[in-house]
């Protein structure tokens, strides 16, 4: 069980890091690597999307490997994170529309919020059950 867990975690780590790498290539490639050749940019974005799909698949494999308590902890954390992110995301978009913030709303802020909320709710739920 531990060996299998280790294997699925390593697979997820590999696909996550390659996803980050392909995202960096798709982001900086047009300016620094191939000077705005559209076909290469499209290929880089498609590669990143494909890699993202494989990362999700690896994450699903890890989730299916969890036992019932681990699944409960993660599902509760995901549910809370989804709700909080919808509320935060809509409020964030609203304050941008109403020009209450100086800069434009950025997707990175929402992704950061999702990550932090998920981590905190995981820690709280682990403390509750473990």
């Amino acid at each position: 069980m531990k060996a299998k867990r280790r294997k699925v975690i390593i697979q997820l780590a590999i696909w996550t890091w390659t996803w980050v790498a392909t995202l960096a290539i798709a982001t900086f490639g047009p300016n620094y690597l191939w000077e705005d050749r559209t076909i290469l940019t499209i290929c880089a974005v498609l590669l990143n999307l494909l890699n993202g799909g494989l990362m999700i698949h690896a994450n699903r494999n890890l989730f299916n490997h969890y036992d019932e308590l681990e699944r409960k902890i993660h599902l509760e954390s995901m549910g809370f994170t989804l709700g909080a992110s919808v509320v935060f995301g809509i409020s964030y978009a609203l304050v941008d529309q109403l020009d209450l913030i100086h800069s434009d709303a950025k997707i990175g802020i929402l992704v950061f919020f999702i990550g932090i909320t998920y981590m905190i709710s995981l820690l709280i739920n682990r403390k509750r059950y473990l």
Binding site: M1, D67, E68, L69, E70, K72, R128, Y129, L130
Partner: peptide
Amino acid sequence: EMIGVSRQTINAIEKEKFDPS
């Protein structure tokens, strides 16, 4: 190991923090 759950899950069941399936 015998029933396919983690040590932490067994501990949570023992402490009555979690109801098993």
